[in-house]
């Protein structure tokens, strides 16, 4: 193996941080000549929990699921557009379920060797850390993980990538 990184997966969740992570992943893949994958995972597990807890009614579950489907399409489309504009041919993967479990499955099935995520939110406690899906994915994926920080710097690198 000549290249230490051949397949990169970036996790998109609609946050600014995930957009920054995607841009950094685009830059990395260009420089390393690696294959780029982007995924948006619709957290149907959380939706189901809210219905079970009687916080959501059925019509809300359907409405929010439709919203998330639309978000997934939008953010994956934006990701694809940005990657293509930098000369890459990314693969977009829309999934649904429990986020950290789905990410682990994707890492295995696509033989990902670098998982890229955006900067993590502040947490209140160890309990929050346990429940934060990005944290759980970061800790449990079987490949190396890159947490992308410094949005301004990443934007500069991305914009200057010819």
């Amino acid at each position: 193996m000549d290249n230490p990184v051949e397949r990169v997966l970036v996790y998109l969740d609609g946050s600014i941080e995930s957009v920054t992570a995607a841009r950094y992943a685009i830059c990395l893949c260009r420089k390393l000549n690696a294959k780029l994958y982007g995924t948006f995972i619709i957290n149907t597990h959380a939706l189901n929990d809210l219905v079970k807890s009687r916080i959501f009614i059925e019509s809300e579950q359907i409405e929010y699921k439709n919203d998330l489907e639309a978000d997934a399409d939008k953010y994956l489309r934006n990701f694809e557009t940005e990657a293509v504009s930098k000369g890459l041919a990314p693969e977009c993967i829309k999934e649904s379920g429990l986020v950290n479990v789905k990410i682990k499955e994707l890492v295995r099935s696509y033989e990902i060797d670098l998982f890229v995520i955006g900067e993590l939110s502040r947490i209140r406690s160890r309990r929050d850390e346990f429940h934060n899906e990005s944290e759980r994915a970061m800790r449990s994926v079987p490949c190396s993980v890159l947490i992308v920080k410094d949005e301004d710097r990443v934007d500069d690198i991305y914009e200057n990538l010819n």
């Binding site: 969740d13 939706l47 809210l50 916080i55 429940h131």
Partner: peptide, 18 residues
């Protein structure tokens, strides 16, 4: 806001758990 269903669900889940 109507366009922030993802964060809305996460926040409700967080409150529910806590």
């Amino acid at each position: 806001p109507p366009d922030q269903s993802g964060p809305h669900i996460e926040a409700l889940s967080e409150i529910s758990r806590a």
